[in-house]
Design a protein around this nucleic acid. Structure first.
Lengths: 263, 263
DNA sequence: CGGTGTCGGCTACCATACAAGTACTCCAGC
DNA sequence: GCTGGAGTACTTGTATGGTAGCCGACACCG
């Protein structure tokens, strides 16, 4: 079972991160966004607690936070499920992201320093590396850093968490498309365009380039919806997910294995 | 003590709202935003649970959510405190709010129906009523509804919760200024200007009017900062709040009284 | 008189026990 | 074979117990 030892595990965990709740929260968040937990999957507080070697309390508190972020749906006395991607949520996330990132760009054009531009270019290089190695996981990480760094250059880095939360909804769907399409090169080119225009302090063109970039991402998602309808949920039909059959549980539990907190 | 009876209380609560956690969460949230709980005040899980007649669990879960919203600061093993207003948070909230509301306005100018405009004008009338009766609490409520309705008219009503959360930080400070200044009339006039220009589909002017309105609100906050410095906290000094002296607790507990969940 | 170690009480964190409710399962009756 | 209903195994929600850690008060010592 690989439970966390009463003392050592917690201590090791504390050393790396914060308290158990934060660790579980981040773990589940990355698993959901990375689609290692698919939309619709059941998340039992008890099962998770057992898997991670902690009690129900921090798991439950993490799920409450994830529900607040719209990444899980909690149906009292029924179960907790990774939320299916609602098209309304996608649209709303796109609106939020576009509004905040373009508003930030407006200030970034005036405030960005040479250092900021250099940092962004360094990230572009790293993205090209990821492209060469076809490492989409690394690219996702670097994409996140790029947009975060861009906002920081505007002086509004504090607003990034809001964008990140909206972005999370989009990324779940995007993660399905990127491996298929060969668009990494295109995306990196758009990143470079934004940096170039930012350096030239050309607001109008930079704004247009960023909007084009963000909209491309959105159109990706719409393509995915046709290919994987089971991961989406119609807007006005909140869908009560069905519980698994009784005896399929044992098989599942032995099948997936690993992932305690004291790695 | 007016504790909640084991069965009845919960049942009555369920009837009104949702589960206990949501009730406690909203209760504390409105108390904090309404400054009935002042920045810096200590919030003990035990005390709150006793006051509200529930167990520590829903109280604790509510505090976690409030911490996520930036309304309380949790210092493990030390205490939980209503967060002081950080100037950096104010600036960040203003940026988020302005970006989202103006972006929404852009679409509202195209999409708003006659019905939308009529609803907004009805809210304007109600605001004038509140002004006549000098009812600032009602005005705050109507101001919230006005801006929410404006976003809904743009088709991006789903993004309102994000604005509302940012707005909460601003409102805490604003609530101190409104009673003093006689600006209700000015604010209502700005609301009317926005509606008028929205109705004429004049985006440029409407955008300018809305920005002017939102910035006036911000400048209010800066005035307040000079008058009530104890409610604010310097940016880079996260300030570890001090625990109360030993024997001042009894006095406090008898002093403030009332506010169970089964009112 | 100033610094220091200890002790007591408080805190949030985590673990566990109990309660209320839902959906699946399976068997009885038709 | 089909339908209905009781039983049961799960679910989340709430309550409570126990633990580590921090702070403040205070006696003790230099």
């Amino acid at each position: 079972m690989s439970l966390m030892r009463p003392r050592e595990g917690l201590h090791a965990a504390r050393a790396r991160g914060g308290n158990t709740r934060q660790l579980v929260h981040e773990l589940l968040r990355t698993r959901i966004i990375g689609l290692r937990l698919a939309p619709g999957a059941a998340l039992s507080e008890n099962d998770l607690a057992a898997e991670l070697g902690v009690s129900r309390t921090p798991v439950r508190e993490s799920l409450i936070l994830l529900a607040d972020e719209g990444l899980v749906d909690v149906y009292p006395q029924m179960g907790t499920f990774v939320s299916r991607i609602r098209f309304a949520d996608i649209a709303s996330a796109q609106f939020i992201r576009e509004a905040l990132e373009t508003a930030a760009l407006r200030d970034a054009v005036e405030r960005a320093t040479e250092r900021d531009v250099a940092d962004l270019r360094a990230l572009l290089d790293a993205q090209r590396d990821a492209e060469r190695h076809a490492d989409t996981e690394a690219f996702f990480q670097l994409d996140e850093e790029f947009h975060a760094r861009l906002m920081a250059a505007s002086g509004h880095g504090d607003a990034w968490p809001v964008v990140s939360q909206a972005k999370a909804q989009l990324d779940r769907a995007r993660r399905l498309s990127l491996p298929l399409t060969q668009q990494l090169h295109l995306l990196i080119g758009q990143h470079r365009d934004v940096v170039d225009l930012l350096e030239r302090r050309d607001l109008a063109s930079a704004d247009e380039a960023l909007r084009r970039h963000l909209r491309l991402v959105l159109s990706d998602v719409e393509k995915i919806r046709a290919r994987h309808p089971e991961l989406f949920s119609e807007d006005d039909a909140p869908i009560r997910p069905r519980r698994e059959p009784r005896d399929s549980r044992d098989r599942r539990e032995t099948a997936e294995n690993g992932g305690t907190l004291d790695g």
